[in-house]
Computed example of a mutant assay.
Amino acid sequence: MSQRNACNSLRLVKLQQQDLVFYLSIYTDPELMQFIGKIQSVEKLQRSFQLTLDYMSRQPPEMLLFVLRSLKGEAVGVGILNFRHQTERKAEIGVIICQQHQRQGYSYQAKRLLIAAAFEDFKATAVTAICQIDNAFANRANQKLGFRIEKTETDSKDKQTKNYWILEKR
């Protein structure tokens, strides 16, 4: 990935083995997970963490997970760049910001960095994002970044209504 992995007050740092405790703290926090999905057991999350590191090591990577770090080095959240739609050259992004760091612009900055990586480093033709309809801050950030709603529908698994956003490369 290029050196464009930092802006204003945030850096993207690829997930590493030593990030397991932070990863678990994010994915076991009920308030954070209310917009993401069901909380899983620590054992299942540990397996997921190892799988994520495996996916990241493939060439080309199937996904990249980043620890979002303030310029002071403090972990403030996680960001994901997923290449589920490689044949269509689409990348999906997602961001989770720790409670104590929310509403400080980190989500917007992280999404901006992930979009740049998708388009410039991985040659995606479009970037997608999925947000629960009642996650006002995430939806507003997507809109400010130039995404448009492709569709809104209720997820058959978790029964949550979600906006499916898309940003096409210009």
Rank of each mutant, 00 (worst) to 15 (best):
S25A: 12
Y23K: 06
K14H: 04
E74W: 10
T28I: 05
E88T: 12
T28Y: 07
A75N: 13
K90T: 08
V42N: 05
L20I: 01
L81A: 10
I36D: 03
G79N: 09
P60Q: 07
P30R: 00
R89E: 06
D29Q: 04
R58I: 14
R69H: 03
F49G: 07
F49M: 09
A6M: 02
G37I: 02
S57R: 02
Q59Y: 12
A75D: 11
M63K: 15
N5F: 13
S2Y: 02
I80V: 14
L45I: 10
T52Y: 04
E62I: 13
Q40F: 14
T52P: 05
L53A: 13
V21L: 13
L71F: 11
L20S: 05
L81G: 05
V13E: 09
F83C: 03
Q46M: 08
R58S: 14
I26C: 13
L24N: 12
G73Q: 07
L10V: 00
S9C: 02
Q59D: 15
N82T: 03
K72Q: 11
G77M: 06
P30L: 07
T28S: 05
V21A: 15
R11S: 12
N82K: 01
S9G: 12
Q18F: 03
T52F: 08
R89F: 08
G77W: 02
L65M: 14
K72Y: 01
N5T: 11
L32F: 05
Q18A: 09
R69Y: 07
I26Q: 10
I36P: 06
S2M: 06
R58L: 15
V21C: 13
E31N: 11
R58G: 14
A6Y: 09
D19I: 08
D54P: 05
M56V: 13
V13T: 06
L24C: 14
S25M: 11
I26E: 12
S2V: 01
L68E: 03
Y55M: 02
Q50F: 02
F35Y: 10
E31D: 07
V67P: 08
L24P: 15
F35K: 03
F22D: 11
N5D: 13
Q18S: 09
L10T: 02
V76F: 06
G73F: 04
S57T: 05
L53N: 10
E62D: 15
